[in-house]
C-alpha cells in the first residue's frame, strides 16, 4: 500500500493541558479514515496537526514524505496539496461562491482567470450548486455553504482531504447532502481523514475507524470490528452513549 500520511509519537500541549499524548498512525492512498471520540479527546487537534494548522509539541507528521512540522518545510506548498473542510465552513463572506473557489487556484497555482472559473463551475456542478455561482455565502443555507467549502478545497486538486466535523454545525436535514458529496469523493478514491460524530457515515464509508480518547488512539480497526466487536471497555462505553 502506498502510504501518504505517517504520524509518529505526535504530542500536543496547550500550556499544562496535554491534548495529544503520543499518536501513531499511517494512512494509505485512497484510504478513508474516520476519527471518532468524545469531545475534548483531541480529534480536531490531531487533524489540524496533519496540515500544520496546529504546531506539534513533539513527534513527527510526514505527508507524502515531507515533514510537516520541520521549520524548513514549505508549508504553503504542502497545504496546497491537502484540502481541509471546517465545521464552521469558513467561506470568505466578501467573495461570491465563484470567487471563493477560484481564489486559491489563481493566486497559489497561478491559474488564469478563465481556467479557474471553468474549474469552479465544474466543481459546483459536482456538488450540485451550479445555480449559486454568483451568490454570496450569507445567501446560502449551511448545507450549501459546506458543499461550496468542499468545492473550494477540491479546486486545488488536493491529494488528501481533511474534514473537521463537517456536519456538526448543520441542521439535521442538511447533513445528508454534505455526507452525500463526501461519499462520492470517497468512491472516487480520494484519501480522506474525517473527524465526525456521524457514526452511520463512518460505518458505511470508512475503511478504518480510529477511536481517540484523552489524546491517545484507544482502538482502531475496520468499521465492522470497531462498531460491532469493540475490544476496549472505553470504546464500548463511548459507543453505547452515542449509538
Amino acid at each position: 500500500m502506498d502510504e501518504v500520511i505517517r504520524v509518529k509519537g505526535l504530542t500536543k500541549q496547550f500550556g499544562e493541558l496535554a491534548v495529544l499524548r503520543g499518536i501513531d498512525c499511517a494512512i494509505a492512498a485512497s484510504e478513508v479514515v474516520c476519527v471518532i471520540g468524545p469531545s475534548g479527546s483531541g480529534k480536531s487537534t490531531f487533524l489540524r496537526c496533519l496540515n500544520g494548522l496546529e504546531e506539534a509539541s513533539g513527534g513527527t507528521v510526514h505527508v507524502r514524505g515531507v515533514s510537516v512540522h520541520d521549520q524548513h518545510t514549505d508549508v504553503d506548498a504542502l497545504r496546497s496539496e491537502i484540502g481541509m473542510v471546517f465545521q464552521r465552513f469558513n467561506l470568505f463572506p466578501h467573495k461570491t461562491v465563484l470567487d471563493n473557489i477560484a481564489l486559491a487556484p489563481m493566486t497559489v497555482r497561478g491559474l488564469a482567470r478563465d481556467a479557474a472559473h471553468e474549474r469552479a463551475r465544474q466543481l459546483l456542478q459536482k456538488v450540485g450548486l451550479s445555480d449559486k455561482i454568483d451568490a454570496y455565502p450569507n445567501q446560502l443555507s449551511g448545507g450549501q455553504q459546506q458543499r461550496v467549502a468542499i468545492a473550494r478545497a477540491l479546486a486545488m486538486q488536493p491529494q488528501i482531504m481533511l474534514f473537521d466535523e463537517p456536519t456538526s454545525a448543520l441542521d439535521p436535514e442538511m447533513v445528508g447532502e454534505v455526507l452525500g458529496v463526501m461519499q462520492t469523493l470517497a468512491e472516487e478514491g480520494m484519501t480522506m481523514v474525517v473527524v465526525t460524530h456521524e457514526m452511520g457515515f463512518a460505518r458505511q464509508v470508512a475503511d478504518r475507524v480510529l477511536f481517540l480518547d484523552e489524546g491517545l488512539v484507544v482502538e482502531e480497526g475496520s468499521p465492522a470490528d470497531l462498531f460491532d466487536r469493540p475490544r476496549e471497555e472505553r470504546t464500548r462505553r463511548f459507543l453505547s452513549n452515542v449509538l
Binding site: 494548522l53 504542502l78 497545504r79 496546497s80 467561506l91 470568505f92
Partner: peptide, 9 residues
C-alpha cells in the same frame, strides 16, 4: 485558517 489551509501564504 481556511485561507492558509488552501496554501495561501
Amino acid at each position: 485558517e481556511a485561507s492558509r489551509s488552501l496554501g495561501l501564504s
